[in-house]
Write a protein that binds this DNA or RNA. Structure first.
Lengths: 195, 195, 195, 195
DNA sequence: CATGAATGAGTGTTCATTCAT
DNA sequence: TATGAATGAACACTCATTCAT
């Protein structure tokens, strides 16, 4: 099951690929650039990835598991669902702030669904899973009267759209902390908090 | 004022360019494809646009004026600011639903600010102008007690992020009417309506 | 027999063509450049010359008659053949100094005999005609004992080579008068003057 | 010191380039033709030379060192300066007869000084160096009374012009031996030998 | 396994030529 | 006759992919 070759070298290439694809898009990112960025030779890239397409797929899909682990981990609803939501939203934004480069590449793929159809489908699953993850918390919030009555899936969809929009426009690492706090606070509005 | 050459042919090429750039990104959209889509010969594209780069710039910037006309036209605040806001939001979403292809290309540019720096700057101006356009309405809403107290510029920024996110994920023309209504209703939440 | 169209416009195009071909060679000189230089529209060039090739031929061959008139006009030998030669050489160099641009284009053609075979043949005739023109004078000079005994055709060939070499290297209009005088004096050496 | 890649392949490409540039000029000589002539694939040319321009520069400048070695090697003047000159001239002409193709390309560059300005400057240095190389011999010849009094630099300049003219017009390898001998004998005349 | 030279399909761009106005 | 828009062949150049070392 263990991969042969050097796991570490493969990881460096993948990271470099994310960097270059994110910055320049698929076509303008060259294997040569990626190899340079990774500090390996040109030909070595093809030792670890069959071709450019496979490298792109790997760059998009492999980190996705980590994303899902963070984004879809929803706590059991307690009597304080709004506080729990706030925690969750905060974790989400923190994660995106750290994964700015990868996030940008995801936007790139989502933005060209015909061109990257297979990957798009894969990424699109995510929104359904997020619905499942957030539904209990939202329903609980409505139940205890802290949230106004909205369809939970609509709420999740708009929240996800908001995240996508934010990371598109305000993704820079030098962005100061307070700005992220603002986004988090406003994101909560989409869940319809009373008062 | 009239250009020589055919205005109509130029417009057809520009429209085809938007279509192809939107679908495939800058590099994968070839001049040949654009010419075919526009129903002109390959060389004719270069009669109207100096090179691919200029064509891209024109495709991004020329329709922007129309966008601004729609998006930045804010009415004088009356005693019903929330109703006015709802009208405005509705107009915005309707516009994006119609301009889905162009919108997608804008996202593409915004998503690669280093690569398309000049265009990015131009597009980025827009957010500042939208702040100016919405500020009076938001302040009026807070004044009359229909909106909770939030910084108007923050509200505008989050609203714009939301729009960007929605048009990224749910932009397809076959999307049914009711879905758009939902987005409009939820967008209003970002303005902090009381109740 | 009279040409239709405007003789004057045709002449302007031809002059511009010589200018551009001389400066940039055949391929790099574009019809557009020539038209601009001539102050006529692009399409007009094709009204007077069937295609680029014909224009080039005309630019090379039409002024040749004038060249021949000057270069091949040899006086009846008198008892002062060396003085007559000096006059002739002086006239030749003066002519080339004036026709620097055209001369350069001739060099260009001669230097690529395979590429411009037809034109090369035509220009090559010139050396034979120059032999005929100078022979009487050279023989007379040898007869009266002012020139050493050399084959007259060899003398002419070397003299022509010298002219070609000079106009290649020292053709600039800003070249001062004294430099030309030097070339004229030294050219005479090739005829083998005694002392 | 050793380049990576194959020195031998690079040399073949360079030789082919000289051949094609010499025959057709810069623009008409295509990379495809050069690659074919060199027996390598199209893309391989770009492995050894960054672009067409660099290939041209290399084709013009790299063999120049060899030229200089032959042309600028002037012997210490003895009591027989004219015999030494004859030797030198003979060596020069022999060299150009062998390097006919390269020589033609040099003429091509010199003939378009505006177009190939940088290269022209480089080649123009050569005439100054030739002056230095020939000066001692010419002065010695004048000193011992074998040459008439002429400015040595003028003599060198006219001699160089003559060489240029000869290689322009009579450069073909099939040219018979006796013709070259004639040119050598007549070239000596430019140095002003007494009798 | 690592390397980078060799390859040629594919791209943007130029420009001579045609031809409708 | 004069014009310049339309056309597409031809070119320089890039770069993913292969493969010998």
């Amino acid at each position: 099951m263990a991969l042969p070759k050097s796991e570490e070298k493969r990881a460096r290439i993948l990271e470099a690929a994310i960097q270059m694809f994110s910055q320049n898009g698929y076509s303008k990112a060259t294997i040569k650039d990626i190899a340079n960025e990774a500090g390996v030779s040109f030909g070595t890239v093809f030792t670890y990835f069959e071709n450019k397409d496979e490298l792109f797929k790997a760059a998009v899909l492999e980190p996705l598991e980590e994303i899902k682990r963070v984004m879809l981990a929803s706590p059991e609803p307690t009597e304080e669902p709004v506080a729990q939501l706030r925690e969750l939203i905060s974790a989400h934004f923190q994660f995106f702030a750290q994964q700015a480069t990868y996030s940008r590449m995801i936007q790139y793929v989502i933005g060209q669904p015909d061109r990257f159809h297979e990957l798009f489908i894969e990424l699109d699953q995510f929104s359904l899973q997020l619905r499942d993850a957030l539904r209990p918390l939202i329903l609980k919030g409505q139940e205890v009267g802290d949230l106004i009555e909205l369809h939970p899936d609509d709420v999740t969809d708009t929240y996800l759209a908001f995240i996508n929009g934010v990371r598109l426009t305000r993704i820079d690492s030098y962005e100061e902390r307070s700005r992220w706090d603002m986004y988090i606070r406003h994101a909560l509005l989409l869940f319809g908090p009373k008062q």
